[in-house]
Simulated scan of single mutants.
Amino acid sequence: MKYSITGQMAGLCALSLLLAACGDSPADEAPVTEAVAPVEEAPTLADAVTNAEGPFAPKDDCGALYGFDSFRGQLRRAITFQNVDSLAALADPAIKLDFGGGAGVDELKKRLADDPELWGEMGDAIALGCAAQGDTAATMPWIFASLPDGTDGLSTYLVTANDAPVLASADAESDSTGTIGWDLVKLAGDGPAADSEFIEVSTLDGATSGFVAEESLRPVSSYRILANRGDDGWKVTAFLTGD
C-alpha cells in the first residue's frame, strides 16, 4: 500500500493538534492512579473446616447415601448464588421452619428476603459435615445428630477452630491458659452478656475452663438442615434453629 506525501502531512498535523490539546508538559499529564490492594475476604467456616482437628471435628457420613452427593451439590450451588428458585425446587413443599407452625416454600422465600443472613446460616450448616440416619435421612451439621447422650443442646457450643485461646478473663489482653479445638463446651457461670465478645465455658468433662471468643463458638442448637429421600428424590424437609 502506498501513502502520499499530502496524506502523511495531514496525519502529522492531526497528531500535532492532538498533542497540543492534551498538553505535553508534566503538569498536564493524567494523574497516576495508585494500585489498590485486593480486599482479603474474611475466613469462612468452610475454610476452618478444611483442616479441622479435634474430638468433634465435622465428619461426613452421607457420601454413600444414594443420590445425596448430587443433591447436596445442587443445594450448595443454590445457596452460594442465593438462587431462591433453585433452593425452592430442592425443598419439600411443607418444609418446617420453626417450632411454632412456620412452614412451606412461600414462607421460606419470605424469610430469606427479610433476612439474607439466613443464606450464610445454611452454608455453615452444610460446611459442618453431615450425619446419616439410615438410608433416607440426613442432618447437617453433623454435630447436631452426634451429641453425646445427656448433652443439653441449649447450653452447649461447638468450638469452630483448631486452636481457640482459652483466656483467664473476658478480656483479649488477659492471660491465656491454653487452647481448645473442635470440642464441645458448655456454658459456665451465669451465661454470656448480650454484648460480650467472650463467653465463659468449660469442656463437658470440666477439665478445661475459661473464656473463649464468641466468634469461635457455635451453639449446637443453631440452624440445621434436615433432608429426606422420597419418591421424588432428596428434599430439604426442615431448616430450623433452637431445640
Rank of each mutant, 00 (worst) to 15 (best):
Asp243Lys: 02
Leu158Gln: 11
Glu53Ala: 12
Arg218Phe: 09
Arg111Gly: 04
Ile79Gly: 00
Ala91Asn: 13
Ala138Pro: 05
Pro58Leu: 10
Val185Ile: 09
Glu53Asp: 12
Ser4Lys: 08
Ala78Met: 02
Ala238Glu: 04
Leu226Ala: 14
Ala27Ile: 03
Phe239Asn: 01
Arg224Lys: 14
Asp124Leu: 03
Ala89Cys: 06
Gly23Glu: 12
Leu75Arg: 05
Gly150Asp: 08
Lys235Trp: 09
Gly120Asn: 13
Gly73Ala: 05
Ala164Val: 05
Phe56Leu: 05
Leu112Met: 14
Thr177Arg: 08
Thr80Ile: 04
Leu187Asn: 01
Ser221Arg: 01
Leu217Pro: 03
Leu217Arg: 00
Ala227Leu: 11
Val212Ile: 12
Lys59Gly: 15
Gly102Thr: 15
Tyr66His: 10
Asp24Val: 15
Pro141Ile: 05
Gln8Gly: 12
Gly54Lys: 13
Gly123Thr: 08
Ile95Cys: 04
Tyr157Asn: 10
Glu200His: 15
Ser222Arg: 06
Ala37Ser: 04
Ala194Lys: 14
Leu108Tyr: 11
Val220Asn: 03
Asp171Pro: 10
Val166Leu: 08
Asp175Ile: 06
Ala137Pro: 01
Ala52Lys: 10
Val159Pro: 01
Gly150Val: 01
Val49Gln: 13
Ala94Cys: 00
Ala91Ile: 02
Phe56Gly: 06
